[in-house]
Design a protein around this nucleic acid. Sequence first.
DNA 1: CTATCATTCGTGAACGCTCCCAATATATTC
DNA 2: GAATATATTGGGAGCGTTCACGAATGATAG
Lengths: 347, 347
Amino acid sequence: MIENCETLEQIANLARVSRSTASRVINSSPYVSLRARKQVLKVIHRTDYQPHQAVRTLVARRTNTIGLIIPQPVPRLFTDPFFPQLAQGISEVCHRRGYYLMLTLMATHADRDSLYRRMLHSGQLDGILVASAVLDDPIIPCLQASHHPCVLVGRNPTYPDIPWVDVDNVTGARRMTEYLISLGHRRIATITGSLNTVPGQDRLEGYRQALAQAEIAIDDTLITEGDFTEESGFYTMKRLMRLEPTAVFAASDLMAIGAIKALKQAGRSVPDDVSVAGYDDIPAAVRMEPQLTTVQQVVFDLGRMAAEKLIMLLDDPDASAYPLLPTTHLVVRGSTRTADRWPKPES
Amino acid sequence: MIENCETLEQIANLARVSRSTASRVINSSPYVSLRARKQVLKVIHRTDYQPHQAVRTLVARRTNTIGLIIPQPVPRLFTDPFFPQLAQGISEVCHRRGYYLMLTLMATHADRDSLYRRMLHSGQLDGILVASAVLDDPIIPCLQASHHPCVLVGRNPTYPDIPWVDVDNVTGARRMTEYLISLGHRRIATITGSLNTVPGQDRLEGYRQALAQAEIAIDDTLITEGDFTEESGFYTMKRLMRLEPTAVFAASDLMAIGAIKALKQAGRSVPDDVSVAGYDDIPAAVRMEPQLTTVQQVVFDLGRMAAEKLIMLLDDPDASAYPLLPTTHLVVRGSTRTADRWPKPES
DNA sequence: CTATCATTCGTGAACGCTCCCAATATATTC
DNA sequence: GAATATATTGGGAGCGTTCACGAATGATAG
């Protein structure tokens, strides 16, 4: 199956140098005369030579390949473009840094163990990126046992010592809540994501911070737990309506969409009666009426950072391990407006 | 970076056989006694041995790795879950068949050529899957020159001889149109996708076939070209409305959504005045009011077939190369209804 | 002119596996 | 019981690199 005919030996012969010298040129060793280097580079260019990756791996004990593992069948995989964007970012960095990217999606966890073993022990990977693992995913202990450098995409408090990158959910949620406050809202409800997930917790934390900062008393009845889905947004909003918040911060766009449906069904107008904000900026957010004010996470950057960080770790295992957080962006659209109006918004 | 300490030699010693015999066991050669096989398997299991992939590649001249290349920054990548589903299907087959999957996304085509070379000439890949290439993508000639077995995901009439798999756009569109006919519609308009794309053409062809089959004269004024986007659906529908079709088949859900917006804006009811059907079954299709009748493509199956076909080709380069088409499913929801009513639907 | 040193280069070993070939053990036939 | 066929097995070569080492070259100092 391998087409690569030219060998280093042949290159060396053509350039009238030894294998070693040719190798040194390829690996940019400083101990090569200018003349020899030029010779070799010319021949390489002319013959379109590519070193045989498998052999380099064998000898140099590094594969120049990193693995991207998506351990669970993430439902989110199919409703928001998180994964393609992440992969895009990772892929870009891999190209730029001369790495290959191996992908492992885990549709069924039937033979998960054999799969993990296959990925980890085949000697195919220099390092590993794990995306969206649930907190107690069994791959993480496996990973540590295998001594592969790795970076988690998504903070995992169960393993605080593993390097990670994440979107800054706290700040994103805080900014959004601050924005709602700046519009004059004081009675701001939130529909949280599942509180047994890190993003769920973090987005709630951001909401709390913003209220505290603005010295608005936190009313626990205005905090209700959803599970990121549209249905949960719908039903939670129905209950929340009685409390007459003037604004609602939903921790996902899907829940925001559900909440808006509930409000409309009850004859309330968004944003005139109630402002609603979401989180994620899924494609549907622009496609609805009104368009959704939301928080955009630059997942592309997240992927880039994850890959950069892992490669940094490969080059220097002791590299500093502080986490990286790409910034989030507020996307203000039609579903929110000022609250500087009469107390009872019955026009 | 490589952890894999056990070597075949060690396994052989532990099992009191030679390297060769151990190798034969691993590669399921028939020329091994039951006793020896048992011995070796026991040791392998006990030591959790994994053969070193790079060496196998070096010697056996196959990598057990296939590449998935997504050559262009496909905008669709970020709005519909095509890519994750495809990858999921491919990944599943790879695991089952003992292959690794290498991913290459092409965000920018800045240094496309060097990237192609790197993927094709590094000897890393046994075969290649190309997804969603535009018709004249330069990777296809490169691919042929590199003599890699490959399978295109998406038919490419420019290269009819390259094996491919695709969703059956013609049949999907035909079925949907037949369904509209079965509801009693006779004046059925279509908003096509870009007609310089294969899916655009194929979906139009399916529409035509259904009408021809039902002996409904094809009225070319009812065929208008969009470009798969929501905006194009919106504006095309505005023009189309004057012609008073009772049903519209849009070649993408996005266009159907745009069309519905145009109709609503003009005070027409969907489905009471006009039935609208889409294509793709994107997540937003269930999230609208009314929910969209559409065609679901089992992209997951498409990925599976693509991988299966490629692996088949790797095992036997002369394997029959007939294309595989996963079936499409009609998803009937609220945006369509019977037309068996009074001629003028002004209630 | 010789000794010392830095620079540059080339040889040989090794990586861990598969494949080829020859050798051995076992079964079968006459 | 010898001769032959068959089923197993083991040893050696080789895959294309990198790396450690030592040799060669040239420059500089004494």
